[in-house]
Amino acid sequence: MNQPNLPEQHTSESLSRLLNQVAQKDKHAFSVLYEATHRKLFGVVYRILKHQALSEEILQEVYLKIWDKASSYSASVASPMTWMITIARNRTIDEVRRNQIPSSEEDVDFDAIPDDSMMPDETFYKSRELVKLEACLDGLDSPRAEMIKAAYLEGLSRQELAEHFHQPIGTIKTWLHRSIKQLQGCMTL
């Protein structure tokens, strides 16, 4: 299971146990879970919103949802971090789409979007999931891998992708659909 950037003392297993305890409404376990995960989740939310106060508001809602939904967590579907990050991303994307606001107050720095060739191996641990996905993204025509990463990490809509890649929105939609079909074939290999 994917285990991105967690403190050393926590594993998928320990986080799963904490989620089980949270499902029993154990506030101490909830505080331990928060301490172990909130920086990562806040990083996900803030990267999309780039607004401290709004990101904090959303993070509150995310953890309230984690509290409410912990009993529905299934380790057979996703790792604890993937499950919690999914909740955080969904709530954040809902926020930017629902309010029709730009996904960030700042222009996206495309130089900052992860580029495999720029990342020294010794400074960045790649999960098996990322290694596999990037192997498949490498098979996409340029700049579609960059587009996929920008959409996922920065929360860009099709319209925003069109503006950033200087393409008609129809072209972006075509790029997305072709990329998805290609990734689907590659990821199931």
């Binding site: 991105p4 971090m81 990490l153």
Partner: peptide
């Protein structure tokens, strides 16, 4: 697809909200 794209979560760096946020959640 959540599983397929979950590897990209590795790229999300940690950030710090205000310290009293958890108290507000509680």
């Amino acid at each position: 697809w959540q599983g397929y794209f979950s590897g990209l979560n590795d790229y999300s760096t940690e950030a710090t909200p205000r310290s009293e946020l958890f108290n507000d959640i509680l």
